[in-house]
Amino acid sequence: MAVNATNRAGRINDSVNNTPLLDEMDRQIILATQAGLPLAPRPYEVVAQQIGTSGEEVMRRLGRMQSLGIIRRIGAVPNHYALGYRGNGMTVWDVADEHVDELGKKIGQLDFVSHCYHRPRHPPHWPYNLFAMVHAHNRQDALQLVERIAALLGEHDRGHTVLFSTRILKKTGLRLPL
């Protein structure tokens, strides 16, 4: 399987010569940890015992996957609903394709935006090509954040809307497709 890696800028690059960046042990480490690390004094050692290697090797490989950009970070995955964020809006914007990179970078830097992506539009049903997640305590606050993005975009904003989530129907960690 050809695996892609990304550099720090988030750009996806093909792996050199199609050589898989992950070997079988990397995959076993991912499989063993994707539901979470064991909350034990020596978590990497516990994982190592499950897959028959050493804790040092698990740490080394996790560090390598981090430096390759396959792993963004290792840490607590917060549940924003439980933490009091009730105004979670997916804001979507229609901006000219030739400006999307420049505008996306500006929005991606805003401190109230957790994710900012360029995605394809599907006219006529879906005209939007820029997505930004905003998180606030309630909808009123979230709508103010949407207005701040609109002000930043100015005349580049050819149309936008915000979709609030009303229910989480499923949320699991990544299931490695193997």
């Binding site: 990304t6 988030g10 991912i30 940890t33 994707q34 539901a35 979470g36 690390l37 909350l39 996790l62 996957m65 950009g69 396959i70 792993i71 963004r72 970070r73 290792i74 840490g75 607590a76 995955v77 917060p78 549940n79 949320k171 960690g173 990544l174």
Partner: peptide, 8 residues
Amino acid sequence: SRVGAIFR
């Protein structure tokens, strides 16, 4: 939800 790796 967990303490673990976030994959890109």
